[in-house]
């Protein structure tokens, strides 16, 4: 009891003595024990491998022989001698720039529809969320391949209205866009977050605006969007990171090749090929760290931009 009522400086003095340290360990031991699985997981499975890969990115390593330190050669090669690095970066950036805004816009539109106080909302919410749970799975990617194949469902529907569709996934002009559509289809998770955000906006805000004569469009632009901006920002950051990391759909739909003609060669797919196709672990590690830096830059830009468009009501 007396220990618990000590002032902070007094407690700090006590902590210095070894017997007190032991007492503290005894007192908090159970807590650390409960923390242990997470601590082990974090140090052994996340931080450890991450630091190891940072080291490996400066080596030549084929998994079988000892890593050989080669300085910054991997990074130099990336920017000077590797056209596939540039190609995959281009594909990924295009994918991010297309899929993220489209997905967010679609998610917001659905959230606004669902927010109109309809009956059975929980059911619709669950149904619309379902693709997000399934979306990144192999099964859906396979399904997508069937849908957009030259004799797939999409083309047979188009044929009904007299349009002869191309083979979407084997045509380099369209293949990336089928993946963008797949990504937009997985709008559930940002939609749920938008819906929660929309419900936070007091209805009297809209009532005041409608008495002020504001049209629905003006209410959306001047009230909904500004008040939702923290949620938009959150979704933007999360979805951008997700889009940079996208891998499964491209892997399945292109059969792991990133084809046709590298049109779906996502950065992560290229990284995977280098690591597990050619066993160039050092080079793949360097690719991974470049991706980390690029994501960090995008995230930092997003954060820096908040003061111009995100409204915080604190």
């Amino acid at each position: 009891m007396a220990e618990q009522t000590l002032s902070r400086p007094a407690a700090a003095r006590m902590r210095a003595s070894p017997s007190r340290l032991g007492a503290a360990m005894r007192r908090n031991g159970a807590g650390y024990l409960f923390l242990a699985p997470w601590l082990l997981g974090f140090f052994l499975l996340t931080l450890g491998p991450a630091l190891a890969s940072l080291y490996l990115s400066f080596t030549d390593f084929d998994l079988l022989t000892t890593p050989e330190f080669i300085g910054a050669q991997n990074y130099v090669r990336m920017v000077t001698q590797d056209p596939k690095f540039a190609a995959s970066m281009k594909v990924t950036l295009l994918y991010v720039l297309l899929s993220v805004p489209l997905k967010l816009a679609f998610a917001l539109a659905v959230a606004m529809l669902l927010n109109r106080g309809m009956q059975g909302l929980p059911v619709y919410r669950a149904i619309f969320y379902l693709p997000s749970l399934l979306g990144t799975s192999v099964a859906i990617a396979v399904l997508w391949r069937q849908l957009f194949a030259s004799d797939g469902l999409v083309n047979s529907l188009l044929a009904q209205i007299g349009i002869e569709g191309p083979s979407w996934i084997s045509n380099p002009n369209y293949s990336l866009y089928t993946l963008v559509v797949l990504s937009v289809w997985q709008f559930g998770s940002p939609m749920i977050i938008f819906l929660a955000g929309l419900r936070q906006i007091p209805t009297d805000m809209y009532e005041a605006a409608s008495l002020d004569g504001a049209s629905p469009t003006r209410q959306f632009l001047r009230i909904t969007l500004p008040l939702l901006s923290p949620v938009v920002f959150f979704n933007l950051v999360i979805q951008t990171i997700e889009a940079f990391k996208a891998f499964t759909p491209a892997f399945i739909i292109s059969g792991g090749s990133g084809g046709p003609i590298n049109s779906t060669l996502f950065y992560t797919l290229y990284l995977y090929q280098e690591a597990f196709g050619y066993f160039r672990m050092g080079y793949a590690s360097a690719l991974a760290w470049v991706l980390v830096i690029i994501i960090a830059i995008f995230t930092a830009i997003s954060f820096l931009s908040t003061k111009y468009w995100v409204h915080h009501d604190d």
Binding site: P202, D204, M205, E207, A208, A209, R222, I223, P226, L227, S229, H311, D313
Partner: peptide, 8 residues
Amino acid sequence: QSYALYPH
């Protein structure tokens, strides 16, 4: 009652 001022 809540004033309904636009907070932003």
